[in-house]
Design a protein around this nucleic acid. Structure first.
Lengths: 208, 208
DNA sequence: TGTAGCTTGTGAAGAAATTCACAAGCTCCC
DNA sequence: GGGAGCTTGTGAATTTCTTCACAAGCTACA
């Protein structure tokens, strides 16, 4: 089975977002061309992306919105709810804990951890903050599928090492630093400084 | 002058982060191989990336850390401070306004806007929240270089249209929706749902 | 039943990004 | 001064991703 490109997965998410939007408006059918216009790509790209997983459309007609939605949800692994914990109850961690967008997509934040003794015991978005000391045992017990890391960059690799050692298999980091994990662990990093730098690069180097 | 790939710019940010880290520790010299190991890439990739902008190393020796840092800062447009405003003072907007990491890299948050009358007038991280009604005039007056959008997805395109019309040229959106801008406007979107979906895709479809 | 009008699915072509591989150039030391 | 030992910079080869282009298949309607 062929390896699926990063960019394909990203586009599938975009397609799904669009499908859910028009689905909620009652649209029943769409075409690769519609999906392409919204995602800023081409209809051939849309069809190629989908073709890696099967053939979901009807020639001459297009795609059934409910059916394609549900197939994409399945492909992206959204058929279940995922148990998430957040490590680091600072600005960003707190905002994420309160962020409603997660729940909508099936991500349930079940735990929040912080190494600051003063914070442990406080409540945040209905969750009691725990001391980071108990994180490893909770992960080892299988309480979480995904670990979100929002600690300061100098502590991030240490936390990563600990949760990986405890058995975590999927990590989303917001720490502005490069992290390393074993090959069987999935890591994604959202680095806001990097995004801003891509903007300033574009502003500074027009036309390239 | 050749167009620079997205991925190259992203890697330059990573290299710069690493250079600043080891520079702070007093390291004076590094090699493409060192940079590659940290960035999870190859030394040839590092050299190729840099070669688009000139030749900064010495054969047999490597790169001067302070010199390469400063060249990269220049290339990425970090030689100046950038004036940023945040539109949307909800969870994420507030967290970003308080986020210290921006200032470190030369991004100054000078304004925060919200359309909620109740919020306007409140202070956030030392900034008085203004009504979104005054946003366009402030942008037209050139008060901001970069607009960060943290409003609910259903309002995001409207805000984008308004700030673009007022003359904004660089936008960073955290709204989980696909946005469109004219070709002369630089837009980047951070979509946390999408990042999580990339994780669940990987968890659901092992080995591809 | 047959034909006109769409839109999909997919090999093949083309473009873009990455990796290879090696000459060129620098430093050190004899 | 000259050779040994590195590491850069870069064309060429390779791999990966995107776009093209068209046969296949579905619907509607006469």
């Amino acid at each position: 089975m062929k390896r699926i490109a990063e960019s394909t997965v990203r586009r599938l998410s975009i397609y799904l977002g669009f499908l859910e939007e028009i689905g909620a408006r009652g649209v029943l059918t769409t075409s690769s061309d519609d999906l392409a216009k919204l995602g800023g790509t081409t209809s051939a790209q849309v069809r190629k992306d989908l073709s890696f997983f099967g053939s979901f459309g009807k020639r001459g007609l297009g795609y059934s919105v409910p059916e394609l939605s549900s197939r994409l949800r399945e492909i992206l692994g959204l058929g279940q709810t995922w148990k998430v914990c957040i490590v680091g109850a600072g600005n960003i961690g707190s905002a994420l804990a309160r962020y409603a967008g997660f729940a909508e997509r099936g991500f349930k934040v079940l735990g929040v951890y912080d190494s600051d003794r003063g914070k442990a015991g406080n409540r945040l978005a209905g969750i009691t903050i725990q001391d980071t000391a108990s994180l490893e045992a909770d992960i080892a017990r299988g309480e979480y599928d995904i670990v979100v890391i929002t600690v300061p960059p100098e502590n991030a690799q240490d936390i990563v090492d600990r949760v990986v050692h405890a058995g975590a298999k999927a990590i989303l980091s917001f720490a502005p630093t490069q992290l390393t994990v074993p090959p069987d662990v999935e890591l994604r990093t959202v680095n806001m400084a990097m995004e801003l730098e891509a903007l300033t690069f574009a502003l500074t180097n027009p036309n390239r």
